[in-house]
């Protein structure tokens, strides 16, 4: 079965957080299973997991429900995805809204690579546009870069208008 991460898992940090929540849920399930087999009363409360994790678990739920080995397999796949997925770091001029993050992430997963993880950062000095770092490649498509490239034109413009 193909792993469906969901559109809300965008960055490696999101994926790490999801893995930790799934691990907590697996630990709880294991504990409950042992207690059930021993006939003991449940002593541990259901762990509080995020809506994203809930959606993920729901989206990847087997037809006959989760068994312990299903959760272990899921965690292993998530770990593999975390380590194997291509990652990109995108720096924007301001903190990106969730909508913008989703737009960029969905576009990349649809057009470039479906399992890409994106780490969004902000730097106001780039003024606009973006700087993308993929592996050892750096793509500077920022407004600051464009301004610096046209610096001489800018000076001429300023000089002519003074």
């Amino acid at each position: 079965m193909k792993l469906n991460l969901g559109e809300n898992i965008i960055s490696p940090a999101d994926l790490r957080s999801l893995i930790e929540e799934v691990e907590a849920y697996a630990a709880y399930s294991r504990h409950r299973h042992i207690q059930a087999r021993a006939g003991a009363r449940p002593t541990k409360n259901t762990p509080r997991i995020s809506e994203t994790a809930n959606e993920f678990l729901a989206a990847n739920k087997p037809k006959d429900g989760y068994k312990l080995r299903d959760l272990d397999r899921l965690i292993a796949e998530l770990e593999q995805r975390y380590h194997k997925s291509p990652q990109a770091r995108i720096t924007l001029a301001d903190i990106a809204s969730t909508g913008l993050k989703l737009s960029i992430s969905n576009w990349l997963r649809l057009n470039v690579n479906e399992s890409v993880l994106i780490d969004f950062r902000s730097d106001s000095t780039i003024l606009g546009g973006m700087i993308v770092v993929v592996g050892s490649h750096i793509y500077d498509w920022s407004m600051r870069r464009q301004l610096l490239e046209t610096k001489n034109k800018l000076i001429d413009l300023v000089s002519n208008n003074v």
Binding site: A88, I104, V112, V116, S124, L127, G128, M143
Partner: peptide, 30 residues
């Protein structure tokens, strides 16, 4: 300018930039 940044206004520009550099992205990510 850095005090007047509006990423919402830049969204279309950002998507267009991604579109313009789609092949470079593909090459780098894959």
């Amino acid at each position: 300018m850095q005090h007047e940044i509006d990423l919402g206004a830049q969204a279309d520009y950002l998507m267009k930039t991604l579109e313009d550099h789609k092949n470079e992205f593909k090459q780098a990510l894959n």
